[in-house]
């Protein structure tokens, strides 16, 4: 069974993340652990230490925790494998990283609404949490029924690591998917790449004997915006997390423009 940690906060992105994670659990066996990390705000100065401090922190948490328990309860009425909310006070990314490492999770899910400003996704992928992630991460951006996945492979997303991680997550789900090899250019028309890329053969070898087969293999060249428009009908885009995202990362620009949830596949550390 897949173990997933879902980060929640009293906001719209978390409503989407929880609901999306619960929908995924209908496709494959998944246990969902919601986590809420309350970060100290600038004005929040703890009045003391020890039990006094703990009481003060608990008081701060109560209001938000109630809102999130409501959110979880509304999902639990439909999706039963949802454990109780875990609440932690501290630095959000650090706390999540600790939990992912110690809890043996296969998947981290968080909500992030699509933005016109492309820098937001780039900033997130550059964060310490994303750089140190021990497992795959799903960024839920919209409530879309999961019908078909687009798997983007290429030099920055090698088939050898991406595809096994993807197959592990979706094991037994009969999910439909297409493969895309894309060459991202700054400008110019969207057009097919006629010579079949070598990476498709590599993918075929990985899929051989597993029962996994892409419905279509696409090789396209175009600007991030044109490619994003071309792929927006997919209900999930899966690829690898860029190891060292640069300021102008074509793939991240493309992903910023798509409304679909994004899955950055990574094999769980210790399971390689």
């Amino acid at each position: 069974m897949i173990k997933a940690l879902v980060s929640v906060y009293p906001d719209l992105a978390s409503v989407i993340a929880m609901n999306y994670a619960c929908r995924l659990s209908k496709m494959f066996a998944m246990e969902i652990q919601p986590i809420f990390v309350k970060e100290p705000e600038e004005g929040d100065k703890a009045p003391a230490v020890g039990w006094v401090r703990q009481t003060w922190e608990n008081g701060l948490l109560d209001v938000e925790q109630e809102a999130m328990n409501k959110l979880i309860e509304s999902e639990r009425s439909v999706y039963v494998k949802l454990t109780s909310l875990q609440v932690i006070y501290g630095d959000r990314d650090e706390a999540i990283l600790d939990n992912l490492l110690q809890g043996g999770y296969d998947l981290f899910v968080e909500g992030s609404i699509s933005r016109f400003e492309k820098s937001v996704l780039l900033q997130r992928t550059c964060s310490r949490l994303y750089r140190k992630l021990p497992c795959s991460v799903m960024i839920a951006r919209n409530l879309i029924d999961l019908n078909k996945i687009l798997v983007i492979i290429g030099d920055a997303a090698p088939a050898s690591t991406l595809l096994p991680a993807l197959m592990k997550l979706f094991k037994g789900s009969n999910v439909r998917f297409d493969l895309l090899y894309s060459k991202i250019i700054d400008s110019g028309p969207l057009e097919p790449i006629y010579s079949e890329p070598e990476i498709f053969n590599e993918a075929d070898e990985i899929f051989h004997g597993t029962g996994w087969k892409p419905e279509k293999k696409l090789a396209l060249q175009g600007s991030p915006r044109d490619l994003a428009t071309q792929i927006e009908e997919y209900s999930l885009v899966a690829t690898s997390l860029p190891s060292e995202p640069e300021r102008h990362n074509g793939l991240l620009e493309l992903l910023s423009d798509t409304p679909s949830p994004i899955l950055f596949c990574r094999q769980r550390i210790g399971m390689l």
Partner: peptide, 23 residues
Amino acid sequence: DSKMGEIIKYYAANKIKALVRFV
């Protein structure tokens, strides 16, 4: 946040693909 949450859940229940974006 809560109003948009209600709106997207309304559309999801009505089987309308409703996306959200912040600007």
